[in-house]
Design a protein around this nucleic acid. Sequence first.
DNA 1: CTCGTTTTATGATTTTAATCATAAAATGAA
DNA 2: TTCATTTTATGATTAAAATCATAAAACGAG
Lengths: 198, 198
Amino acid sequence: MITVELLEKYGVSKKTFDRNDIIFEEGNLPLNYYQIISGEVKMSNYNDDGREFIQGIFYKTQSFGEPPLFLNQKYPANAIAVENAEIFILPKENFMKLLEQNPKVSIKIIENLAQRLYYKSVMAAEISTHEPEHRVLKLIDHGIAYFNFQKDKNGYLINFTRQQIGDLTGLRVETVIRAIKALEKKGELKIINRKVYR
Amino acid sequence: MITVELLEKYGVSKKTFDRNDIIFEEGNLPLNYYQIISGEVKMSNYNDDGREFIQGIFYKTQSFGEPPLFLNQKYPANAIAVENAEIFILPKENFMKLLEQNPKVSIKIIENLAQRLYYKSVMAAEISTHEPEHRVLKLIDHGIAYFNFQKDKNGYLINFTRQQIGDLTGLRVETVIRAIKALEKKGELKIINRKVYR
DNA sequence: CTCGTTTTATGATTTTAATCATAAAATGAA
DNA sequence: TTCATTTTATGATTAAAATCATAAAACGAG
């Protein structure tokens, strides 16, 4: 998102997180700009009985957690490393100075926020008004365009677990399993030794 | 959002829309920047059997529909006048030139997108993992902060219909009616001749 | 390699909100 | 000011996904 050179010019630091480490927590005030060097990060909420909702999954070069930074509001969700991750951390003041002094970066930020808003619009409509199979398929098709799914001879490998798909679509894991089976039967996707291809 | 003077400098035009007029439609490519002068606009989706999901409601001074403009993507939803509305319309090229030549406007845009992303994050988690009463209350509390609800001696008047609340939370109107009654019984809000106060 | 954990899987049962039916009250356009 | 439409309301019924129970397969840390 923001080039390494520019980040270093403004005093960025690096930090590593192990699988399941918390990067920041819901309810806390934002202090930094975060940009992934390597690994995978999820932003998610937990309701009172521990049920998870995944707001989004982020990969290398992507930033996350900016909205509350711009609004001086508390984080609406937690950021957690899904696998070992290396992350650039830039203190808020430095980040704001960087933005001010480099107007072209603003455009990049706008495009990034616009992209995330677009995803949330699509998924909100799905979750509210469509049945499980439709939701799952929409998530998968969005993922092919914006998550880093790899294509091989069987098609795109959807490298999410059934549980993750459930947490992204507001469905329980059993419902996702049954929806995926039904979609396979309809020829919308393939299951090759438990892995999903589209 | 953007000052009238600046908009006029870049050749903005005004257009009026009657109640239920379509401003733009899902699937179309964005051609303009829209900013409300007066009236009320909703962005919403309809599923196959006509069920509506309202992405957001916008009032005077607010802009809407920018994300696809920045991404050169099709609109993910329709924009419809909820009541007679007067709207500034600035062609895309002019808007982009305005942005380029006025870096401070970018910051305003960023803050606006961040605010909308924040709302969507909160509501997505609600819709996915919480029961009707919780969802309705969260929408109302968000509305007090960000929609233009007016306070009087009974508290904040929630000037949404039960149907609108349903379309914003993914619930059917009967469920919303029952949830509001239950919330009144619990003392979370008041119903004074059919109007909801919080 | 081994063993505990996670993931996928399937069937039975339950719960919850949707749906269906109906109607009174309120609103608004002619 | 009348009449069609919208909004609020309530009860009965249904359908769909959640929940519960259980287990095999796969994975991964040690």
